[in-house]
Every structure is written in C-alpha cells, then in structure tokens.
C-alpha cells in the first residue's frame, strides 16, 4: 500500500511540474524510480521502447509501463498501473480545466492575442524540431551504428551516413496524401505499417 501511495504522489508531482511532454518526462520518471529503488533498471529500456511504440500519450504509456514493472517487482500483480496513470492524469485534468475556463474568457483580449501572436510561430518551430529529432534518432538522417536501419536503402557519402531513402520516399508520400487528399490519418498509419513490412 505504501508503494502505491508513493507511486501516485511521484507521478502526480511529475505531471504537475515537468514541461515539454512525454519524451522530456521519461528520463525524469526513470531517475525518480531508480533513486527510490522501486524498479529494476534493466527493465527500463524495454519499457521505454514499448511506451514509444504504443499509441496514445507517450507519458501515459511510460507511466503505465513503469507502474506495472514496480508492482511486478514488489509482487503486487498489475495494480501499480492504477496509481501511475491516475497520478499522471489528475494534475492534467485540474490544470487544463482551470486554464481552459480562464482562457476562453480572455481569448479576445488584446494582450492575450499579442502573446498568441508570438507563441504560434514558436510552437510551429518546436513542432518542426520534434519531427527533425525523431528523424535523427531513428536513422533517417545521419544514422549512427545503433540507429542505422539495416534493411534500408542507406545513402552514404565519404563513409558517412546521409539519409535512408526508403523512409524519405514514405515520408514524402505520406505528406502528399495528408496535404492533398481527404484520407483519414488513421488509415495512413495502418497503410504505412503494412508497406513497411514489405519494403524493409
């Protein structure tokens, strides 16, 4: 029981005070759990991999996975999932609802509009950065030995990896479909998964 409360409070604190979304929160989660001796460090890498490949919010996925591991380690079945995801969800619900209540009242205010005027292009830049980062860490550009897609069409220049061409073609096709057709993005994801099985 003690561990359940501890887990809940830990994830609540994380959710309420860490900015930048799931990929920023995962390393902090790992640190906290290891510091408190709640988790077997050798399991963490696999859990993070699962969190990244599952659909849904990455932070929630990681919390569910880590909560599961903690309760496994302490012979409590799968019950650790409960405090972990509730700890993540509760601050989000409270903070977002409070901000939303306030936000729509001041939305038309000239200072709020000025703030949004500066915020929008910055968010566009940050989102584009997230895409670039994902491409870099998954061997699409400038791959290292551990990120290289071995079955890909890797374009090398003077011994250095430049780009993986199959991914680039898939990216271009996906972007074109998004921009020019009315296909629901869900089918795009399913379709690209099926194509992936055949081309890689």
């Amino acid at each position: 029981m003690d561990i359940m409360v501890k887990l809940f409070l830990m994830f609540m604190k994380l959710s309420a005070f860490s900015f930048g979304g799931g990929y920023v929160m995962i390393p902090i989660m790992m640190q906290e759990l290891e510091k408190n001796g709640l988790i077997d460090p050798s399991m963490v890498t696999d859990i993070v991999a699962i969190a990244g490949m599952s659909p849904g919010p990455v932070a929630v996925n990681a919390a569910v996975g880590l909560g599961y591991c903690v309760s496994k380690l302490h012979n409590m079945g799968a019950w650790g999932i409960l405090p972990a995801f509730m700890g993540i969800a509760l601050p989000c619900a409270i903070i977002v609802i409070l901000v939303a209540m306030f936000f729509f009242n001041v939305y038309k205010n000239k200072h709020v509009q000025s703030a949004l005027y500066g915020l929008r292009p910055a968010i566009a830049g940050i989102v584009l950065y997230a895409a670039a980062k994902l491409a870099l860490t998954n061997g699409i550009f400038f791959a290292h030995l551990d990120t290289l897609i071995k079955t890909g069409a890797n374009f090398m220049l003077a011994g250095h990896h430049i780009a993986e061409l199959k991914s680039l073609v898939l990216f271009a096709a996906a972007f074109f479909i998004l921009a020019k057709t009315k296909l629901h993005p869900i089918y795009l994801i399913i379709g690209s998964g099926i194509i992936g099985i055949f081309v890689f």
Binding site: M53, Y117, L119, R120, P121, I123, A124, G125, V127, L128, A130, A131, L134, A135, N138, I140, I149, T151, G152, K166, S167, L168, L170, F171, A172, A174, F175, L178, A179, P185, L188, I189, G191, S192, G193, I194, I195, G196, I197, F198, V199, F200
Partner: peptide, 27 residues
C-alpha cells in the same frame, strides 16, 4: 520492426504537417 520502420516516416509526416498548419496560421 519493419512495420514500425514504415510507420515512423508517416508519423514524421504527420508532425511536419502539423508544424506546417500551425506555421500557416501563425506566420
């Protein structure tokens, strides 16, 4: 693994598309 190799470029396309749409409304 290969399915995820295929899904990843599509996810990146989704993110770039999101950036493009936000940029269009913000720049």
């Amino acid at each position: 693994q290969n399915a995820f190799n295929g899904i990843r470029p599509a996810i990146i396309a989704l993110i770039v598309y999101a950036a493009y749409k936000i940029a269009k409304s913000g720049i």
